[in-house]
Write a protein that binds this DNA or RNA. Structure first.
Lengths: 318, 318
DNA sequence: CGCGCATCTGCTCAGATGAGCAACAATCCC
DNA sequence: GGGATTGTTGCTCATCTGAGCAGATGCGCG
């Protein structure tokens, strides 16, 4: 397009979008036919001079969602807008809200819903509305009785989600990680625990988050792992944890021995499940989000715009 | 509007603006009539959820221009958008470009154009296109042979503007400020200089910028004033300089004695002129811009969005 | 319970807009 | 210089959209 046409398209856009003039009127002002004005406006849009943003906590980015679905093979992607967000916490709250919305609109409603625990899932539970689904049985899919936090963070998440659905919660009364393999095996042998795990394995849908592998991990906070252990895992390629299990960029378990001592469903169970919803948001979670999506650990991803763009970008530069 | 309607309006906006769906189609998706969709979209706009921005160096902000004209009585206001601008320099360059555009479109074309000098005016001269006006006589309205900068900054501005208009430049061969009043008076008595000043007083239009009163002033750079002198002026109420003369917030000369030693047209000559174009941009120039506009020193203001908003804001809070 | 008021909903209709088409202009290549 | 190709312009027509209106619905108050 010629330089003067570019300038004209800007003048036209000002009159059209800021002054609410009709294309006809703009034609009179700029001494153009209204068709020319229409084409100038179209070219201004095509050149990206017109930026339309939806500024609202509940706003989503549908075009990015579509591109994500197409490039990753996810069955669904929910991407919340980061327009006007000032903090990571706000972004995560928006994402949790979107996840809650998604769960609410799920059809068919899953009879059994397997969930992990953590800050994100807790947030999701708070955003669900009373009566969001009728009679869902919520089951914990990984261990999580906190060692040194106020008890019940993990349990309360499940209970809240179940309560708001007028359903029941099945808790997994076990630590996330045992120090000795034998203790873990003994625990799993217990009839009650085995029953919960069987239920977890047969859930119709899973909702989980993921943590970046760093010193702020919830597993460190809870006392299951030390910072040194995390450093070691990172040096062996770990990018983050999913249902308490550390994986590398290729979705493989980093430390099989540690994995064996971890209570809950296996990574492979997520891979096989027909509906697994990952809720991952925050600027430091791009790597683990990539690992989860790339390796088919979820069928649905709920995330924020920045993380989604990070996922898309690497696709373009193989 | 109800909460669920607000959410619906966001969903509708996503489909309308990001997915280019028709209101009819959106109605089918959201199970609404197309009229309802139309109203939801209108309400999303009214609530400010839809932000439309024109991102282009030449973009202007017409609504702000209109409000400025209405609230200040300016005959014209040109406000460049600051969308996507990273530095003050870029903003000033955009403003200079807009000033050049404005000059180019001036009708009737002034036969004699009085200009000041400085970084901004120089920028304007560079943005003018060859042949922007036929045969304008450009005349300097204040002294400005640099003392310690590379010679000719002031002169080259006038010459460039005149040259690009295929016109002539009349320079004011004098320092901006004399140390002794007598020298200044002797200078003005000189036939040549008196002739230039007479021409300057009779110019049909003026273009000038203004400087904030601080250590970075061009008058300090050029060696006419010391930082201490500026501090003194500020302590006496000076907010900045116009054609080399320091004024306070009420548009009054701060130091009459200094003013007497300054060569060029008087502030009052600007007040009386039918067409005076002030080009003022930058985040540190809000105060001097306010003084210029409030006190009728210009009839046309070319500025940036931030400065314009600063001018408008104070109007709202008297 | 019934009335009046305010809001909401679906509609008509006219004006605004985008897609597609034919005529025309500009450019390029022999 | 001639012909082909590409891009531009003004137009017709079908579709989309907003204003205005009448009836429906909901709400508060006596």
């Amino acid at each position: 397009m010629s330089d003067t046409d570019e300038l004209l398209s800007i003048r036209a856009a000002e009159l059209y979008y800021e002054e609410n003039q009709t294309q006809d009127e703009i034609g009179v002002i700029l001494r153009l036919t209204r068709w020319k004005v229409g084409r100038l406006l179209a070219s201004a849009k095509a050149n990206g001079f017109i930026r339309i943003e939806i500024v609202h906590p509940r706003a989503r980015r549908l075009p990015i969602e579509r591109r994500l679905r197409e490039s990753t093979g996810l069955t669904d992607a929910i991407v919340v807008s980061s327009a006007g967000v000032s903090s990571d916490a706000e972004l995560q709250s928006r994402t949790a809200q979107a996840a809650a919305d998604y769960l609410t609109s799920l059809r068919p409603i899953p009879r059994t819903l397997g969930i992990s625990w953590g800050r994100t899932l807790h947030d999701v539970s708070l955003h669900l509305k009373q009566g969001w689904a009728p009679g869902v049985n919520v089951v914990q899919i990984n261990g999580g009785v906190s060692l040194n936090q106020r008890t019940g963070t993990a349990a309360s998440t499940a209970v809240t989600i179940a309560h708001k659905a007028d359903g029941s919660a099945t808790l997994l009364p076990s630590p996330a990680i045992f120090e000795r393999l034998e203790t873990k095996q003994a625990m799993e042998a217990d009839r009650t625990v085995a029953g919960v795990l069987a239920l977890a394995r047969n859930a119709q849908a899973y909702v989980f988050s993921a943590g970046q592998a760093d010193a702020n991990s919830a597993l460190v906070d809870s006392g299951y792992l030390t910072v040194e252990q995390i450093d070691d895992l990172v040096s062996r390629g770990a990018v983050g944890d999913v249902v308490g299990r550390y994986i590398d960029a290729n979705g493989r378990i980093v430390d099989p021995e540690l994995n064996e001592r971890t209570v809950g469903i296996q990574i492979d169970q997520l891979r096989r499940a027909p509906l697994t919803i990952a809720v991952i948001s925050g600027n430091n979670k791009h790597a683990i989000a990539r690992a989860v999506v790339r390796n088919g650990l979820c069928t649905v991803l709920v995330t924020d715009e920045d993380t989604a763009n990070a996922l898309l970008q690497e696709k373009d530069t193989p």
